[in-house]
Design a protein around this nucleic acid. Structure first.
Lengths: 352, 352
DNA sequence: TTGTAGGCGTTATCAA
DNA sequence: TTGATAACGCCTACAA
């Protein structure tokens, strides 16, 4: 009726089990279990007796046997590729908030690059995690195949749709197009783009931008490869300007790069933003709003993005892909819009 | 000899168990277990046979029964109070890196305020977490007492040493003193301090600063309450300047506040940094190094801080408190130091 | 509504 | 070095 070790066995931290509570309350162990199972049928009298006993013993249900039994752990792996960009802080916050609502817990994995992603998530499978969310884009079919084999739902942000991978994207192509329109509408004719290292969202932002610029009858934008950090944006812009290029409209892969570019522009005497060159970033990180930057950029609701990731994780049957919208936030690095005719033209279909 | 469900029972995701591996390898389940237990004695022949079988079946040890048995989960709760300040990204990175080295996993808790801290960690005790690290300072004895009762080691950053709480601190008092010395050595006579909301590290930074300023024979610094964000720093400085105050040396509770203050100062025509007012921040977040700021500040090795947290968690017997050093990083918001005599005076003992 | 019994997949113990 | 067996603490039948 009552297993030996359920009281305490001296060697380990003694844990109060449902058996001890049962004994104190004068009921069976199953009854205690039912009291702690939402929606189970227990008489009020018994429930109160049990809760009183549990309270007295400071009983905390142990999730592990239940996981062992049901196969569901309530644990979700959350994979990050580093935290250097404040935009990740927003996403992480969104994910943790959404997980909390569903009573799921986040096991944080700082993977660095998506090479390690497979290994790390595989590692975590020993905890029987229910799923994984990767803020780090899954870039290779090999990694995707590895994740597939785990047999758990995997959501990845801004990845290509490999296999059963579920993808939540920011509307990168639209952002690129809107950036082009915003700059062209404001009179820019010499466009330039500061690129990140190759990944799906970078590629889409760029292609959306370039194609729309060309569709608007302007030459293909100049291009410089920066990366994703302030320093890389700064260096790339210094180099671009040193090469003699004088674009009058600049779109950057993200805000950090844009802010780096702004600072580089400021080193050139007589070159003014937005009079001589207009700049648009992407993400709307807090620093974009700082007085020293007042950067025009695309805002995306990161809390929503986090929520979408968690929701997709639970979808059954699996939805394969959703994207979150973005809004152009106009600040001081672009001029005010005057021309209405071109504004209308910006509604034209993409040169796909 | 071989339990029924160990192959697959149709209802759940079928998991390969040590029993299936044992059967394929022609050994007992215990032997399989030993092969996957570091340091257990198994003959080479058997080990290879088992590993081959495990490989063939893609066996992944299930951690849950082991946890049930040993009481050790390898899970550590990591409590954050939000991610708005980039310094937290650094700390989080340090913690995850150190945990990984010890083969521990981080369960991320975004607590918002330390009120929820107790509840959330208590929640996680159902996973039999081995310990908790709170980047959020534990501010009340009540929360600390709650954590005490969990019977697991808890490390908190920059908290007061309540009960069995283990504390890792940045050297806040020293930072305050060094900031005072740095400003006074550079000729400041009218000091001001932008404070955060009350918490242990804010209090120590301020008290270290104020006392040293007074010890150096100057009047008590002016004080304005900002908070911990750029916006709050900006607003507080705008107000301070509007009140007619014209300090020539400013120390801020952190870099975000300092950068906000810098931007506020820039709104006043003719007020130059560092000629008219010198500014020092704290944390050395990436933005402090940006060209637009070039903020003099105190750098702290956040990776080290993370490592310390993890190490303290494992200390037995528990060490109660350590602190990590910081270094003054001189940039463009302070003047260059000329006077040597005062430099020597800065080595004088604190007016404690 | 309540209790009994079996199983989840490991580790720990002890005997062979 | 290996194997058999008993926990670990819960959930899920099924019986009362």
């Amino acid at each position: 009726m009552c297993p030996a070790g359920s009281t305490s066995n001296g060697k380990r931290r003694p844990q109060v089990s449902s058996w001890s509570v049962a004994r104190l309350a004068g009921v069976s162990q199953s009854t205690v279990s039912r009291v702690f199972t939402p929606g189970a049928s227990v008489s009020l009298a018994v429930r109160e007796k049990v809760l009183a006993a549990a309270d007295q013993l400071k009983y905390r249900p142990n999730a592990l046997p239940a996981i062992l039994q049901t196969g569901r752990s309530g644990l979700v792996a959350v994979v990050m590729g580093g935290f250097y960009n404040p935009v990740y802080a927003g996403i992480l916050h969104g994910i943790t908030a959404a997980l909390k609502e569903r009573r799921l817990e986040a096991v944080l994995v700082d993977a660095g690059s998506d090479e390690n992603l497979g290994d790390r998530v595989d590692d975590l499978s020993r905890y029987r995690i229910d799923g994984a969310i990767s803020v780090l884009a899954v870039g290779s079919a090999k990694v995707a195949a590895r994740l597939d084999q785990l047999g758990i739902p995997v959501v990845a942000v801004n990845s290509r749709p490999f296999g059963t991978l579920r993808v939540v994207s920011t509307s990168n192509r639209t952002i690129g197009r809107d950036a082009a329109d915003a700059l062209v509408d404001r009179g820019c004719t010499q466009l330039a783009y500061l690129a990140g290292r190759d990944n799906p969202s970078q590629r889409e932002r760029e292609s959306g931008f370039s194609k729309r610029v060309v569709a608007r009858g302007l030459p293909t934008p100049q291009r410089a490869v920066a990366g994703f950090t302030y320093e890389e944006g700064y260096a790339a812009m210094v180099q671009l300007l040193a090469s003699g290029a004088r674009p009058d409209g600049l779109f950057c892969v993200n805000d950090l790069v844009a802010i780096g570019a702004l600072d580089a522009i400021r080193t050139v005497p007589g070159l003014r933003v937005p009079e001589d060159i207009q700049v648009i970033g992407c993400d709307d990180i807090p620093m974009a709003a700082w007085q020293q930057n007042r950067l025009t950029t695309f805002a995306q609701d990161m809390t929503l993005l986090g929520r979408q990731c968690v929701e997709m994780l639970g979808n059954d049957p699996p939805a394969s892909s959703v994207s979150v919208p973005s809004t152009l936030v106009l600040r001081a690095t672009t001029r005010t819009l005057l021309q209405t005719p071109q504004q209308m033209q910006s509604k034209a279909p993409a040169a796909q």
